[in-house]
Amino acid sequence: MQIFRPQADTIARVVLVSIALLPVFVVGLAYAIVRSPYVTAQNETREQPIPFSHKHHAGELGIDCRYCHTSVEKARFAGMPPTETCMTCHSQLWTNAGMLAPVRMSLADNQPLRWRRINTLPDYVYFDHSIHLAKGVGCSTCHGAVDQMPLMRQAAPLTMGWCLDCHRNPEQYVRPREAIFDMSWTSPADQTEKGKRLVAEYHIRANLTDCSLCHR
């Protein structure tokens, strides 16, 4: 008398293989979720006090990054412009525009606009804008084509692996000093060769993957 059906052996094999593969699937799924835009917030836009367009200001009008982000070359933080910077132009242009009412109110009440940070890092990560610019890392390398963004978004995943890729291969990302703020700059065909020369010129040290550089 046959106790098990003919398919029982096949079913048992499938079950055993599934049990063996389950941990691999779970780990892979967790890894994919952690690297997904759902967690990293890549390409996410956030509501702001006013719908400020970098495409219009930086792209169409050609306003330099440093006009608003005045501390980017000398401090950890790029800095946000005070209301007075906005009103330098808007006391003369679009003075009654409805969307600029929060700017006018900010000036009248002497209260800063509450901008929401787009590119955020965990509290245990140390990042300094000034040293990256001094070593030839351009704005668009991390922030993307800001001059083409009607609303600002996080262009890069900002994961540890993404940062380490640059720290391990800086010659692939550094650019000439005059191109730091050039949003249209692209790597030339001989980037590796030129990048190695720039790495030497900027005195970029070799131990860029030391934990203490970013975790202090």
Rank of each mutant, 00 (worst) to 15 (best):
residue 5 R to L: 12
residue 8 A to Q: 15
residue 13 R to T: 14
residue 14 V to E: 11
residue 14 V to A: 15
residue 16 L to A: 13
residue 20 A to D: 06
residue 21 L to R: 13
residue 22 L to Q: 04
residue 23 P to M: 05
residue 24 V to S: 12
residue 26 V to W: 01
residue 27 V to A: 06
residue 28 G to F: 00
residue 31 Y to A: 14
residue 31 Y to R: 11
residue 31 Y to C: 02
residue 35 R to S: 06
residue 37 P to L: 01
residue 37 P to G: 04
residue 38 Y to F: 15
residue 38 Y to G: 03
residue 39 V to I: 15
residue 41 A to W: 03
residue 41 A to E: 09
residue 41 A to Y: 00
residue 43 N to R: 12
residue 46 R to G: 03
residue 47 E to R: 13
residue 49 P to I: 03
residue 54 H to C: 15
residue 58 A to D: 01
residue 59 G to Q: 04
residue 63 I to S: 00
residue 70 T to Y: 09
residue 72 V to M: 15
residue 73 E to N: 11
residue 74 K to H: 14
residue 74 K to L: 07
residue 75 A to H: 02
residue 75 A to E: 09
residue 79 G to I: 08
residue 79 G to Q: 07
residue 81 P to V: 09
residue 87 M to F: 08
residue 88 T to C: 09
residue 89 C to Q: 05
residue 91 S to R: 14
residue 91 S to W: 10
residue 93 L to N: 10
residue 93 L to C: 01
residue 100 L to H: 09
residue 100 L to C: 11
residue 101 A to H: 12
residue 101 A to V: 14
residue 101 A to S: 12
residue 102 P to E: 02
residue 110 N to F: 06
residue 113 L to Q: 01
residue 114 R to E: 14
residue 115 W to R: 00
residue 116 R to M: 00
residue 119 N to W: 04
residue 119 N to D: 15
residue 120 T to C: 03
residue 125 V to A: 14
residue 126 Y to W: 04
residue 127 F to L: 11
residue 129 H to I: 05
residue 130 S to A: 15
residue 132 H to K: 12
residue 132 H to Q: 13
residue 132 H to N: 13
residue 133 L to Q: 01
residue 133 L to H: 10
residue 134 A to W: 02
residue 135 K to T: 14
residue 135 K to F: 12
residue 138 G to N: 07
residue 139 C to Y: 06
residue 139 C to R: 07
residue 141 T to R: 05
residue 141 T to H: 12
residue 143 H to E: 07
residue 144 G to R: 03
residue 146 V to A: 08
residue 147 D to N: 13
residue 152 M to E: 06
residue 153 R to L: 14
residue 154 Q to F: 11
residue 156 A to Y: 04
residue 157 P to D: 05
residue 158 L to N: 10
residue 158 L to I: 10
residue 159 T to M: 05
residue 160 M to K: 09
residue 161 G to A: 08
residue 164 L to R: 06
residue 165 D to R: 13
residue 165 D to A: 11
residue 166 C to M: 12
residue 166 C to Q: 09
residue 166 C to S: 07
residue 168 R to E: 13
residue 168 R to Y: 07
residue 168 R to N: 10
residue 168 R to V: 02
residue 170 P to E: 08
residue 172 Q to H: 06
residue 174 V to S: 03
residue 175 R to P: 00
residue 177 R to N: 09
residue 177 R to H: 11
residue 179 A to W: 04
residue 181 F to W: 08
residue 183 M to E: 00
residue 184 S to R: 13
residue 185 W to N: 02
residue 186 T to M: 08
residue 187 S to L: 08
residue 190 D to P: 08
residue 190 D to M: 08
residue 190 D to L: 04
residue 194 K to F: 07
residue 194 K to A: 08
residue 194 K to S: 08
residue 196 K to Q: 15
residue 198 L to Q: 02
residue 205 R to Y: 10
residue 208 L to W: 00
residue 208 L to H: 02
residue 208 L to G: 07
residue 209 T to F: 01
residue 211 C to H: 04
residue 212 S to Q: 13
residue 214 C to F: 01
